[in-house]
Write a protein that binds this DNA or RNA. Structure first.
Lengths: 212, 212
DNA sequence: CCCGTTCTAAAACGGACGTTCCATACATCG
DNA sequence: CGATGTATGGAACGTCCGTTTTAGAACGGG
């Protein structure tokens, strides 16, 4: 029942009891996603991960803060993967964005509105205090924006407009998921998806640029 | 130095040392906006408000939770007031939304990116745990949405489309402010403003409805 | 003038927090 | 077979948490 073979450098066994460090990061990511930074205790994390305090501080000598950074990065990569996967499976950018909102809505409802954005809660609770966490969250947003921007450029939207539009898409997804979670209703996400699709369609056919 | 005259039912003196209860709510609102629910202590609130623990528990027998609900409601009303004020001062809905994003950006930058949305941090940290706070936050979002929807209808947009668009506007503002705060950069807000303006302009002239 | 209500003041409590510390187990290497 | 370095188990520490409690001050109505 112990752990598994030692010297498993990255501990990437996919799922079969994934090594202590990996379990700790996963537990931290889930718990902080749900309860925020201050609302999540190290002891709770270690318990949920099936590890002990000694292990936590062994792998994360920087304590809670270092662990939170790892958790945010984990959430970042996880969502980036999902995002890429969905975008690749859709024919056009408008359909892709709608598909993302649908996926987010399903995830939210399936978790009884507990699992929102994996970085927002952690980032927001530590906004002006813990710069390391803030930076990790900021680069997560930037990364997602890049993924969306790439898709938009591939669809033929000009460089600069694609960047703006990608920023808009990520912000709106963020806000809509937040809204849906707080109001326990998937409608904000679905509406956001449709409206974003309108906006993308407008850009695809070179429609009116901001100034009415 | 004490307080002021007793029996000041609502304690609405505008600003001249506004009574203990009022000071407590204000301090709670600001602190929870910045640090979230779990990150803010009752003792910190009482100290910041220039009150004592006795006063806090006198006015809020329900403890921290009741105080948080009052703080969220206060943030709700505050932003609703600002929103109405800005919307009334602009000629059309597109300009109005842009003005709101500019105002939010200024507020964020002026506070060194500390003061984001007055309800998001509190709501997100207590999402599945404290239903009272969640409800207060949810009704705040709904109220803001109503204000925006009314403006859109007044500008001639049909009932149902105005509702969807208003939801989109509020979600995007929420997400953009979050993004701006985390990345310490006002660009997300400004981009969101312009893109929302495009979307509104599209609705004003009966443009393409979702289906590409 | 005194009583009751309203409000303020601060001490005290049990518990949880993040962190430190050390003793132990185990695989690997000389 | 020691010896070594990595990993685990868990007790212990000091601090701060939300809350309770008890006492006192400031007013209003009888």
């Amino acid at each position: 029942m112990k752990t598994r073979t030692r010297h498993d450098p990255a501990g990437q066994d996919q799922d079969a009891t994934p090594g202590t460090r990996e379990r700790i990061v996963r537990a931290a990511s889930v718990l902080m996603q749900r309860q925020g930074y201050d609302g999540t205790g190290i002891k709770q994390i270690s318990q949920e991960a099936g590890a002990t305090l000694g292990s936590v501080y062994h792998f994360f000598p920087g304590g809670k803060q270092e662990l939170a950074v790892a958790a945010v990065r984990r959430g970042d990569e996880e969502f980036a993967g999902i995002l890429r996967e969905i975008l690749d499976g859709e024919p056009g950018p408008a359909e892709a964005v709608v598909a993302v909102t649908r996926s987010l809505a399903e995830g939210l409802r399936a978790s009884d509105w507990l699992d929102g954005c994996p970085v927002t809660a952690t980032a927001l609770g530590t906004a002006g205090r813990l710069p390391d966490i803030q930076r990790a969250a900021s680069s997560a947003f930037a990364g997602w924006e890049g993924i969306v921007a790439e898709m938009l450029r591939a669809a033929g939207i000009a460089e600069e407009e694609a960047a703006d539009l990608a920023g808009m898409v990520v912000c709106t997804l963020e806000g809509a998921e937040l809204s849906a979670q707080v109001s326990r209703d998937e409608r904000p996400l679905l509406v956001a998806g449709e409206q974003l699709a309108r906006l993308i369609a407008l850009s695809l056919r070179g429609g009116l640029p901001a100034g009415s």
